[in-house]
């Protein structure tokens, strides 16, 4: 039974999120933690916009916030987002990782320790290689890994970088990612 989903995206990410996050069902039985590479000066347009489009709750994560299912937590701009093993969120302003803050690798690595084999990690469109090492880490700790089909991705560098250093469990299009997550959600509810 999976307990959480982490997703990383860079260039083209907002469109990708707009495509598949609204497809997730109401009362979704897992939390999602997301990193979108974004300029340090960005306001909260992205989260408020996505929140309006989605059936699940979408918000910017807060310091020491306890993670709740059915909610998508985006990292704020200019902070790394870390997942604590007590299933809460913390931040760091340490140096950029892969030229990025927030960095997908930082989220994936810390989330993999917090959720181990109960974690699903997903890499979407992007123009760099952030997230590849993190996705590999998730796999090492027994989690389930998905990469967006490079053919579909607006920018294929990030999916390809991940595929280059590890073998993801699935390579899917955005619609299929939504279907897959909804299936996990239903399965979770059935078990619970």
């Amino acid at each position: 039974m999976f307990e959480a989903v982490v997703i990383g995206a860079s260039a083209g990410g907002l469109n990708a999120f707009k495509t598949f996050l609204p497809k997730l069902e109401k009362n979704f039985s897992l939390p999602l933690m997301l990193v979108q590479h974004i300029s340090p000066q960005s306001d909260n347009y992205m989260t408020t916009h996505l929140d309006k489009l989605c059936k699940i709750k979408v918000k910017e994560a807060e310091e020491k916030e306890t993670i709740k299912k059915g909610t998508a937590y985006f990292s704020p701009p200019n902070f790394h987002m870390l997942i604590e093993e007590d299933k809460s969120i913390s931040f760091s302003v340490e140096n950029k990782v892969n030229y990025a803050r927030p960095s997908i690798d930082v989220l994936f690595e810390t989330a993999s320790y917090a959720y181990k084999n109960k974690l699903i990690g997903i890499i979407l469109t992007g123009a760099n290689n952030d997230g590849a090492a993190g996705l590999k880490k998730i796999q090492e700790l027994g989690g389930f890994t998905i990469v967006q089909d490079p053919e579909e991705a607006e920018v294929d560098t990030m999916p390809l970088s991940a595929i280059k250093i590890m073998k993801p469990d699935k390579i899917l299009k955005l619609k299929e990612i939504a279907d897959f997550l909804n299936k996990i959600h239903k399965n979770n509810k059935r078990i619970a």
Binding site: L82, I83, S90, T110
Partner: peptide
């Protein structure tokens, strides 16, 4: 200190 940060 926060554990995730320290571990990293």
């Amino acid at each position: 200190y926060g554990k995730a940060h320290i571990k990293r």
